[in-house]
Every structure is written in structure tokens, then in C-alpha cells.
Simulated scan of single mutants.
Amino acid sequence: MMRVASCRCGSLRANCSGEPIRLSVCHCRACQQRTGSAFSAQVRFPVDAVTVEGNWLEFVRIADSGREVTYRFCPSCGSTVSYMIDEWPDLIAVPVGLFDEADFPEPAYSIFEKNRQSWVSITGAETQHHP
């Protein structure tokens, strides 16, 4: 199966083959700032299952966890199309909202819930919740 994620202007795409390793949501402040929403939702694929096409810029930051995160984003519209965390170099994350398909499973993890907005409830039967 091939899934395609694209930025808002369509000039940067992530072609993802196969099934994702996991879907997770994150409530950390950095994800809230990146998405402009109360949390982020992303799927992770093996890095060799994703081909990013188009021109991108990279932004690298140190997360609250101390890990280095490298974001690839569209220089035209600013959408983050993928990111990698140095601790997991074999995985690449792609924001769920960039895919046309809406057929992903419920999230496996909900992390940084200490920053979760009080009105947000992640209710997957199998979802693991982490402060």
C-alpha cells in the first residue's frame, strides 16, 4: 500500500509504503506550537519506506526529552512534512493530517499528557497514556 502526504501547497510530498509502525499523539508545547493545535498526531514508518519529494528546509531543535529532532518543512507554505528523532534513526514521522486517506488505526501512544488541554480526550481502547 502507498500513502501520500503533502504540504498545503502540494510542492512537498512524503510517499509512504506499507503500514505504519505506530500512530501517536503528542501534547508537548513544541508540537502544539508546530501544529497550531492542542496536540499533534503522527504516524511512524521505517525510514526506508518513505521517500520525500520536493524542496524542503530543515529545522533542528533539542526536545524537552534532550533528543535532537530534525523537521523537514516546505519553504513555500511552511507545512512540516516529516521529522526524525536522533534516538530512532530508522524511523520517520509524518503528520497524520497531511494524508488524504483517513484509514489509520487509533493511536498507540498519547504522550506529554501533562500539557494536554483539559478539554482533549484521547480514547483509543489500546492507547497507552504517558505523562
Score class of each variant (00 low, 15 high):
Val43Tyr: 07
Cys77Asn: 12
Cys28Asp: 09
Val52Glu: 06
Met1Trp: 03
Glu113Gln: 09
Ala14Leu: 09
Met84Cys: 14
Asn15His: 13
Trp56Val: 00
Val60Ala: 06
Glu68Pro: 02
Leu12Glu: 00
Glu113Leu: 02
Val94Gln: 08
Pro131Val: 11
Val81Phe: 03
Asp103Cys: 07
Val60Glu: 08
Asp100Leu: 12
Ser79Ile: 01
Gly66Arg: 06
His130Met: 03
Tyr71Trp: 10
Ser121Leu: 09
Val43Pro: 05
Asp100Met: 11
Met1Gln: 10
Gly10Ser: 12
Pro20Lys: 09
Val47Met: 09
Glu68Lys: 13
Tyr71Gln: 04
Pro46Ala: 11
Thr70Met: 01
Asn115Phe: 05
Tyr71Ile: 01
Asn115Ile: 02
Phe112His: 11
Asn55Thr: 09
Phe112Tyr: 15
Leu12Trp: 02
Asp90Ala: 14
Gly66Ser: 05
Leu23His: 15
Trp88Met: 05
Cys31Ala: 13
Pro89Lys: 04
Pro105Tyr: 14
Thr80Ala: 06
Arg61Lys: 14
Leu12Ile: 08
Asn55Phe: 02
Thr80Val: 14
Arg72Lys: 09
Asp64Arg: 06
Val25Trp: 06
Ala49Asn: 14
Glu106Pro: 04
Ser6Glu: 15
Gly54Trp: 03
Glu87Ile: 11
Ile111Pro: 00
Ser40Arg: 03
Val120Asn: 10
Leu12Val: 13
Asp48Gly: 10
Ser37Glu: 14
Glu87Tyr: 12
Trp56Asn: 00
Thr51Val: 13
Trp56Asp: 00
Pro105Leu: 13
Leu91Glu: 12
Gln128Thr: 09
Cys28Val: 14
Thr35Gln: 13
Pro95Thr: 07
Glu53Lys: 12
His129Ile: 06
Leu91Phe: 13
Tyr83Gly: 00
Ala125Asp: 15
Ala125Glu: 15
Ser76Phe: 01
Val94Ala: 13
Gln33Tyr: 11
Gly18Phe: 09
Asp48Thr: 08
Ala102Cys: 10
His130Cys: 02
Ser24Asp: 06
Ile111Leu: 13
Ser121Lys: 15
Gly97Asn: 14
Val120Gly: 04
Glu68Thr: 15
Gly97Pro: 11
His130Tyr: 10
Val25Glu: 04
Leu57Phe: 00
Leu98Cys: 06
Asp86Ala: 14
Leu91Gln: 12
Phe99Ile: 03
